[in-house]
């Protein structure tokens, strides 16, 4: 089942993403958030999502910059005033708030880039099938239909194009109309055929007794240890967070940005959580390179 990050049990990886999502929205100390963003970039590179990262980079940059630039001008809370712009105060607090917000959003987006690559379709459905089995099954079925439908669509388009129904040329109105007629054929046709799918499910006993899902992923001892470690470190960080560490006060007046020893503890433990997949991947690489 792959190696490195891909070999970690989906539950563990899912928990990891939950932790990181929580961190991104929970902490607001720029240092912690920066550490989070950098860790996620490292994680993405480690499991080979460099290309996806590159693809999303411009969009993320623009978004982050926009928030950072706009926030101080539309928001005038705070006491440390930089200057006045059209009679409104532009404050240090608002600027910092913009930075923190954009970093937090950036971290969430990075997280999803990694999640889309690591917990691909089947893995994420596997996780949800433990909580919501019927819904997960429905989603799975729906995903299975998509390529089939796409192929049918091209078939219908060919036929109807030669009947004079085109979506490539003409006014928007006519194109939209043709597109919709094509969708209507797809609907009628697919619903008709879907009955056979339902019969095939019934013929194989769907809905008879409680399903016992096939478990494609083995939960190893290693996975258990990793989960326990993650859990402990996560709790340590969160408790620290509730005590005010790893966080700053922005409004109504900027608090201190100073890093206390306990802040360091929170940073270290959260960093250990954030970099967990990199450790796994790194260990794997080391094993490959230095063992004979």
């Amino acid at each position: 089942m792959g190696n490195g990050i891909q070999s970690i049990h989906p539950f563990v990886m899912f928990f990891y993403y939950i932790c990181l999502g929580f961190f991104a929205m929970f902490f607001n100390h720029p240092v912690v958030l920066l550490a989070g963003c950098l860790s996620l970039i490292a994680v993405n590179l480690a499991h080979g999502s460099g290309r996806a990262l590159k693809q999303w980079a411009p969009m993320m940059m623009v978004m982050a910059l926009l928030i950072i630039l706009i926030n101080p001008f539309i928001n005038s809370r705070g006491t440390h005033i930089f200057f006045y712009f059209r009679g409104k105060q532009v404050t240090l607090e608002a600027t910092l708030y913009g930075i923190v917000t954009s970093m937090s959003l950036l971290m969430i987006l990075l997280l999803f880039i990694s999640l889309n690559a690591v917990l691909n379709g089947n893995k994420i459905l596997y996780i949800f099938s433990r909580i919501l089995p019927k819904t997960a099954f429905l989603v799975m079925l729906s995903i299975r239909f998509v390529p089939l439908l796409k192929r049918r669509l091209t078939e219908i388009q060919d036929v109807q194009r030669l009947r004079g129904m085109t979506i490539r040329q003409g006014s928007i109105r006519n194109r939209a109309k043709s597109g919709m007629s094509i969708m209507q054929i797809l609907l009628a046709w697919s619903l008709e055929e879907a009955i056979e799918t339902a019969d095939s499910m019934k013929a194989r006993g769907y809905g008879m007794v409680k399903r016992s899902p096939y478990i494609p992923y083995r939960f190893t001892k290693m996975d258990r240890n990793r989960l326990v470690c993650l859990f402990l470190l996560f709790n340590l960080s969160v408790v620290g967070g509730f005590l005010g560490y790893g966080k700053i006060i922005i409004y109504p007046m900027l608090g201190t940005l100073h890093f206390y020893p306990l802040d360091w503890v929170v940073l270290t433990s959260s960093l250990a959580v954030m970099l967990f997949p990199v450790f796994v991947e790194g260990r794997e690489q080391l094993k490959w390179n230095y063992s004979d």
């Binding site: 299975r144 095939s200 499910m201 769907y206 007794v209 096939y214 494609p216």
Partner: peptide
Amino acid sequence: NQIVMDEVMQEIVFGLENLG
């Protein structure tokens, strides 16, 4: 039309899953 699941392995055990 008969295929239900998104992966061959999942598909062939589908009946066995249903029967528990």
